[in-house]
Simulated assay, not measured.
Amino acid sequence: MRLLIVSDSHGNSHILDELVEKYIDHVDKFVHCGDSELPDNHLVWNIMDTVSGNCDFYADFKDIHIERETAFPYAIVHGHHHNVKWTLEDLKEFAKLNKLSFMFYGHSHILKFDYEDGIFFINPGSIQSPRGLLREKTYCLLEANDTTVKIRVFDDQHEELPELFQKWELTQV
């Protein structure tokens, strides 16, 4: 399974178009974790799955998108209804209840990876306005198979940030 994960683009449709053009033949799915601030009839939503964020006032997106047609079931949320700035417990409970392998979320604008109780929690940061110690605009490429999960992080110029690379051997987790 290969996914492109992006969040919090806050009106920057240009970068979303670039991501689709660059990766259309290289990923299985495109994931946007909300706060696009784009209308729900924007053409990018024909390709990219998204959810409603706290700044998506003019679109009718779902609050949660669950995907079960991939090798590893996952959900996309923005996070503002799940207390993600303080804890992952709400996401963990939701993931366990729905038997999900991955939870993708945004809202905090802070790149973050966690693995707890057999669930991967991934926040790709913000492609428009990053916060926290890392001030890079980021998105992620996730590759998962039966033995490994790899996450590569890129900036808005599509340059890889190799120091942020993450890898988990599934036989060890």
Rank of each mutant, 00 (worst) to 15 (best):
T138W: 02
M103C: 15
A144F: 11
N46L: 15
K99V: 01
K96A: 00
N123K: 05
D49A: 12
F61K: 10
N46W: 03
D156P: 03
F154D: 03
P130T: 05
G34P: 09
D60G: 08
L161S: 02
F154A: 04
G34Q: 02
Y105D: 05
L100W: 06
M103P: 03
M48S: 01
I64E: 01
L141H: 03
M103E: 12
K137C: 14
F102R: 15
N98S: 12
T50L: 02
H109T: 05
V44I: 15
T70S: 11
F120M: 04
P130V: 02
I110C: 06
K112G: 05
L88K: 03
E89G: 01
I64Q: 04
G118V: 06
L161A: 03
K167C: 15
P124I: 06
S36T: 12
T70K: 07
T148W: 00
F113T: 09
F94E: 05
K167Y: 00
K99N: 12
D155E: 06
L43A: 08
K85Y: 14
N123T: 07
E69N: 08
P39N: 13
M48R: 13
K62G: 04
D146W: 00
Y115P: 11
F94K: 09
N98C: 10
E159L: 13
K96W: 14
V153E: 12
Q157M: 10
Y139I: 03
V149L: 10
Q166F: 11
P73Q: 07
F30I: 07
E136G: 02
Y74P: 10
L161W: 12
F121R: 11
F121M: 13
L161G: 02
E159I: 09
V84I: 07
V77K: 14
N83S: 13
G34C: 04
H158M: 11
C55E: 02
D117N: 10
F154V: 02
L43C: 02
K92H: 11
K112S: 13
G53N: 08
I76S: 08
S36F: 09
C55W: 09
Q128F: 12
A144V: 13
S36D: 01
V149N: 00
E143F: 09
